Simulated scan of single mutants.
Amino acid sequence: MAGPAWRSSMFLGAVAVTLSVAAPSLAGDPDYLQDVCVADLNSEVKVNGFPCKANVTADDFFSGILAKPGATNTTSGSVVTGANVEKVPGLNTLGVSLSRIDYAPGGLNPPHTHPRATEVVFVLYGELDVGFITTANKLFAKTIYEGDVFAFPRGLVHFQKNNGDKPAAVISAFNSQLPGTQSIALTLFGASQEVPDDVLAKAFQIDAEEVDKIKAKFVPRKS
Score class of each variant (00 low, 15 high):
A22P: 00
S25A: 08
L26A: 04
G28W: 05
G28K: 05
G28E: 07
D29M: 01
L33D: 08
D35K: 07
D35G: 03
A39I: 04
A39T: 01
D40A: 01
D40V: 01
L41N: 02
L41V: 02
N42L: 04
N42Q: 09
S43L: 02
V45D: 03
V45R: 05
K46F: 04
V47I: 15
N48W: 04
G49W: 03
G49N: 02
F50H: 11
F50Y: 15
P51N: 03
P51H: 04
C52S: 02
C52W: 00
K53T: 02
N55R: 06
N55S: 10
V56W: 01
D59C: 01
D60Q: 05
F61W: 04
F62Q: 06
F62L: 10
I65P: 00
I65K: 09
L66I: 06
A67G: 05
K68F: 07
P69M: 05
G70V: 05
T72W: 10
T75W: 08
T75H: 08
S76H: 13
V79I: 15
V80F: 10
G82R: 09
G82D: 13
A83T: 12
A83Y: 05
A83K: 06
N84H: 14
N84Q: 10
V85L: 12
V85N: 04
E86G: 09
K87L: 15
P89H: 11
N92I: 11
G95M: 14
V96R: 15
L98A: 15
S99Q: 14
S99L: 11
R100E: 15
I101W: 08
Y103I: 11
Y103F: 15
A104D: 12
P105G: 12
P105Q: 12
G107W: 13
G107L: 09
